[in-house]
């Protein structure tokens, strides 16, 4: 019951979707479409699950007065205020009938004033850490590391105007050695070759894992125990 039914569901859904590609007529066409719609709808419940989990984790932190528990109040306050404002579409011109992100809505205000700077600055911080990490760890210790470093430098230079000015004196017959052209060539050929080898490897891995899942050989997603 606890494992047999999930394995059966996985088998039926997975097999139906594979068959739908090779046998497009009914009932597989409808199964493909309906299962896709069901999948999209279930995905929303994952967001709700995420919200519920957030309340549970931070509620626990507060009730047990764990380290930094006071900041959990900030998380929960931010969560509930955004949820309240968004679900009731407060401030939007047509109210509950309009778009949730309508101009003038409080939800849009939260998006512009709070979510945007927080998410953008979190990622912008990485610029500083990339620089610091490169200074400390990017060493031409071996042939491989030197190749990596050279390719990185050509790309870094080739993607800016410095690259043009450094090698713009080269005659036309040697224009392929201009740094921007070298950067373009690296991206189009060796980079494509390396990425393609990785992509082909991953595709085989995904296909094998998918088959193992559908056939019930791979069951780790069901968790341990009965």
């Amino acid at each position: 019951m606890k494992k047999t039914i999930p394995l059966l569901i996985t088998f039926v859904v997975g097999l139906a979707l594979i068959l739908a590609i090779f046998i497009p007529p009914e009932p597989f066409h409808t199964m493909n479409r309906e299962f896709s719609v069901y999948f999209d709808i279930i995905a929303v419940f994952a967001f709700i699950l995420g919200g519920g989990n957030l309340i549970r984790v931070h509620g626990n932190k507060i009730s047990r007065k764990k380290k930094d528990y006071k900041y959990s109040f900030v998380t929960l306050l931010g969560f509930f205020v955004t949820l309240f404002v968004g679900l009731l579409k407060i401030g939007g011109p047509p109210g509950i009938q309009g778009e949730v992100m309508a101009s003038g809505s409080w939800f849009l205000f939260i998006f512009n004033a709070i979510l945007t700077p927080l998410t953008a600055t979190m990622f912008a911080l990485l610029a500083f850490y990339v620089a610091s990490a490169s200074f400390r760890a990017f060493r031409a210790k071996t042939t491989e590391a030197t190749i990596l470093l050279l390719a990185g430098f050509i790309i870094l230079l080739g993607r800016t105007f410095f690259g043009y000015y450094i090698t713009s004196w080269l005659p036309d017959s040697l224009s392929f050695l201009e740094i921007p052209n070298l950067a373009n060539w690296i991206m189009a050929w060796p980079n494509t070759a390396g990425q393609r080898a990785i992509v082909i490897g991953i595709s085989l891995g995904v296909a094998a894992t998918s088959l193992r899942i559908i056939l019930g050989i791979e069951r780790s997603y069901l968790g341990s125990g009965e």
Partner: peptide
């Protein structure tokens, strides 16, 4: 924005070169 982008690339490259000289 490509000018500030270029200068930042240059600074990072200089730091990598300094790091390698030290090494």
């Amino acid at each position: 924005l490509m000018a500030p982008q270029a200068f930042a690339h240059l600074v990072i490259m200089v730091f990598i070169i300094i790091g390698n000289i030290i090494f």
